[in-house]
């Protein structure tokens, strides 16, 4: 019982005091907030040690049990040890491992860590291009709206994008017209055929306003998408997150939510 009750009491008192401190930033609450923040900074420092312990233990167990891909874990532990020793050595020699004169910063950080991390992230460019090609299909109205908005923003926010957009939208509209004509030819009823051919004609005609207005207005349309519909959705999401955060905080302070004790 004590193992649960004491943490719940600490959580309740800390939470309530910090709420008071926000609304009454004077003594004794204002000072209390500073003190709590100092403790928080110290505890945060120790969580790094906890993280290291957890990481090393997890990978050490993988090696010990010879689990699948255990050699990756071995590489991680070796890299960890090299980094730690080199960092300490540079720190002792220069005073700080991140001093521009330290060998740790000059060699390991600049020529190993930075290129590796940058390379990992750079791979996204390839995956995003491939994923956009496979996933961005105008299957429904919502998907089509998303697709058109994405294309407008992508082209509207890069230099020369407006010029390129005329060509690209032109090609897309011609392709649409060809598709509609082929579709119309396969239909038997006159109404369907008229609709398909009319759509094809409209697609071709739409090229004229696009060629005239896109070079001037595409960046403005991209800005409008970013500043109005995008912002409205984001704000809604943010308000939802904030309300959820308040509800969850209250549940934790009042001891209703106890999963963090497990």
């Amino acid at each position: 019982m004590m193992r649960r009750t004491i943490p719940l009491i600490i959580t309740f008192i800390s939470g309530i005091l910090l709420v008071f401190a926000l609304f009454i930033p004077h003594k004794p609450f204002g000072n209390l907030e500073e003190r709590f923040n100092d403790w928080y900074i110290i505890v945060s420092g120790f969580t790094m040690i906890l993280g290291m312990d957890s990481l090393l233990l997890h990978h050490w167990n993988k090696i010990r049990r010879r689990q699948a891909d255990w050699f990756h874990s071995a590489a991680l532990i070796v890299a960890f040890a090299v980094t730690l020793v080199w960092g300490f050595y540079s720190g002792i020699k220069v005073g700080n491992p991140f001093d521009p004169k330290s060998t740790f910063l000059q060699y390991f950080y600049t020529y190993v860590f930075v290129p590796l991390q940058a390379t990992m992230f750079s791979l996204l460019a390839f995956f995003i291009a491939s994923a956009a090609y496979r996933a961005f299909r105008a299957r429904t109205l919502n998907a089509t709206l998303l697709l058109v908005a994405a294309v407008v923003v992508m082209l509207g926010r890069v230099p020369k994008g407006s010029g390129a957009s005329v060509v690209l939208f032109g090609i897309a509209l011609v392709a649409l017209a060809v598709g509609l004509v082929l579709h119309g030819r396969s239909l038997v009823d006159l109404r369907g055929q008229l609709l398909a051919y009319g759509g094809a004609a409209l697609s071709i005609l739409a090229i004229i306003p696009i060629a005239k207005y896109f070079p001037t207005y595409l960046p403005a349309v991209a800005d409008w998408i970013m500043n109005i519909p995008q912002l409205a959705a984001k704000r809604g999401i943010f308000i939802g997150i904030a309300l959820g955060g308040i509800a969850m905080s209250l549940r934790i302070i009042l001891g209703i939510e106890r999963t963090y004790l497990k």
């Binding site: 460019a125 995003i128 291009a129 956009a132 090609y133 961005f136 697709l147 994405a150 294309v151 992508m154 082209l155 890069v158 994008g161 390129a164 690209l168 090609i171 897309a172 392709a175």
Partner: peptide
């Protein structure tokens, strides 16, 4: 790359 992605989408 943006133009390439748009071409691929089309």
């Amino acid at each position: 790359i943006h133009i390439l992605v748009v071409v691929l989408i089309i």
